[in-house]
Design a protein around this nucleic acid. Sequence first.
RNA 1: GGAGAGGUGGCCGAGUGGUCGAAGGCGCUCCCCUGCUAAGGGAGUAGGCGGUGUAGAGCUGUCUCGAGGGUUCGAAUCCCUUCCUCUCCGCCA
Length: 425
Amino acid sequence: MFDIKWIRSNPDLFDNSLARRGVEPMANALLALDDERKKTVQQLNEWQEKRNASSKQIGQAKAQGDEEKAQALLAEVADLKAKVQAGEEQEREQTAELNQILAGVPNLLLDDVPDGEDEDANVERHKVGEPKRFNFEPKEHYELGEALGHMDFETAAKIAGSRFVVLKSDIARLERALGQYMLDLHTREHGFTEVVAPLLVRPEALFGTGQLPKFAEDAFQTTDDRWLIPTSEVSLTNLVRESMLSKEELPLRFTSLTPCFRSEAGSAGRDTRGMLRQHQFYKVEMVAVTTPDTSLDEHERMLGCAEAVMKGLEIPYRVMRLCAGDMGATMQRTYDIEAWLPGQNTYREISSVSVAGDYQARRMQARYRDEDGKPQYVHTLNGSGVATGRALIAVMENYQQEDGSIAVPTVLQPYMGGQTVISAD
RNA sequence: GGAGAGGUGGCCGAGUGGUCGAAGGCGCUCCCCUGCUAAGGGAGUAGGCGGUGUAGAGCUGUCUCGAGGGUUCGAAUCCCUUCCUCUCCGCCA
């Protein structure tokens, strides 16, 4: 959510950022709306001032028992009431219209975000590890999982439809191990506080993080007007909604392992096989709440936290700078981590680490007091650390062996009771 | 699900339809006092949107007492709707 005053003093910056996202310029239209609103407010204030002054006099007159004077003033002020009410109504409408438009405006892009329309224009930032060479034809994760008898899409479809999976036995345990490993890493070594928060949230929470109002079709809604979280970014970021934090307690760092629910509207036909794109998946999320001057450093730090997971799992990956056209609307800059998937012979997204600036904080009314004691909006960041379901895919494909078994990565073995290989039961 | 109580500043908590953005307390800031500490005394301390103006400040209008409507010349106070919290009962885990 933008501050209209900021747009007023930076209209070109604002429109240029929109243009990079492929959005038509809107500064002029927004400022015109705001001008009208201001006129209304000024006129309204004048009427209110007169009314308040007269009302005060009426009160004094009545207190002094001067009923005659009170009646005279009453008559004098009578028509102000209608004017004030009409002015209030107009102000409400104009403010609502302005806010509705502002609520849908995507966040400002940082200067170092590459130009481009889609993922083809993303720029590699750096690469870690080399794709392993197999002396056999590596399989995709679902081939491996189904052959092991531990991954069942057909049964899942009977229960829930497409884009669901049933995991069993050691593969189910492997996914659990991944989640535990990541949580322990972030809480013990990266200073994050583990959180269990609601998976079902009010629309206000989704508005706060920016999924609403524009992206309602991507999430599932319940019959009582709650929503299933598409990512625990929603729950974790909203932990600080409507709060006044002290500078000393920042940065706040939260992590959570949760299911995520996505309708995947608009992605029909994409990644239909396997568990790469599901309606339900587990993800370890990291959220940070910082002061404005530290959020960019925090972005690099958080990327490092996500990378630590990949390094620990010893999976080759590359980090991409998302280009303007491929970025989410709420973010100022996003780094994606893409894991090497031998079965697909390509890199696929496994984590996305973003800085939102004060965009979400404004929507949530999340502030802190600076050194002068003045309230300021905090900055928020979030990143997957990492998507557990996709990490399972990456582990299976990178650790597959010629006989179809899966070696267990060293860091996960403690979470698997020392087990080193996953084979058919 | 039934019955009741309540939502007020950073926090706690008073508030009769009129001079209430709001007593008091805590916290915080500054000052005074005391040899240090503890205690004590004094002053200050909400946010949004405008106007004016400045190096910074300041001055000023208005709105905001969960949210949204309404009654009234005037609402923290009265009415309606709604959300949330708490207590008791019932139900389920």
